[in-house]
Amino acid sequence: MAAITLDNIVKTYGEKDKKVLAVDRASFSVEEGEMFGLIGPDGAGKTTLFRILTTLLLPDSGTASVAGYDTAKDYTKIRNSVGYMPGRFSLYQDLTVEENLQFFATIFNTTIEENYHLIKDIYVQIEPFKDRRAGKLSGGMKQKLALCCALIHKPTVLFLDEPTTGVDVVSRVEFWDMLKRLKAQGITILVSTPYMDEAVLCDRIALIQNGKILSVDTPENTVRKYPTKLYAARSDDMHRLLKEIRSYPDIASCFTFGESMHFTFRSDDPHNIEKLKAKLNKAPHEYLEIKEIQPGIEDYFIQISEPAHE
């Protein structure tokens, strides 16, 4: 049975004459025990989707279910069985670590002791600071505390809205390790992130932009859908290289990508690359390096979202 299903969910905001479409006919389902990633930039509709699934918002049309319950009708049942960590830090900053945890345990009708095994791994890391006010914790520790609070009532489905945004790299890595361990305990996890490099850590991912679900698949299959060959180029003068490659007529797309730039050709002509190199060598670059590479999630995302921007 699917832990989460969405069927043609539509949600708009705003007044009649200035309606903003936040979610546009979104459909997908998440299997029980799966770690599912919702990948997309700010304003793509991720948070709205989370709020619909956690019964905080009603969709304009379409239906959704979580843990087998309808999000509109059975909202009390869903509220008993899900854990939710909103995008921004949503704990009481003037309460200590322990007081926060105690409070959320009580309002979920449980005790810290009862489900301590679930949070133990995470809680021991913040336990030395249990008398510190939550507002005074570092970003990474805040996230850990928020995760503990979301887990304290042993939810069957866990919703994490951008848990790693703005958190330092070390904490991000640790956080994903924790999620893996939770998944091993059978908890279904829906997690969103704007960082494309985190997508590969999920079982399956949905790419979302402008409220539309662009693709739903495993990370491996997602990048396999990349339609053409992808090349990477670098030199000592990246900006000049960028301009020159872009001005080459057969180039379909060219954009900076970390230390190099990624580009594709319009046609599958096997001599494309030699011709380009010849042209580039007219005004030689130092350390010019061009090679074919495996596309990543971000490459695919750019590839499918680009038309909307031109």
Binding site: G40, P41, D42, G43, A44, T165, G166, P194, M196, Q209, H239, L242, F255, T256, E298, F301, I302, S305, E306, H309
Partner: peptide, 21 residues
Amino acid sequence: TGGVDPVTRRQFWDLIYEAAD
């Protein structure tokens, strides 16, 4: 560029390069 989509982020960097030029 916090939270901006990957395409816009790159267009944004193009602008930065031009300004530096």
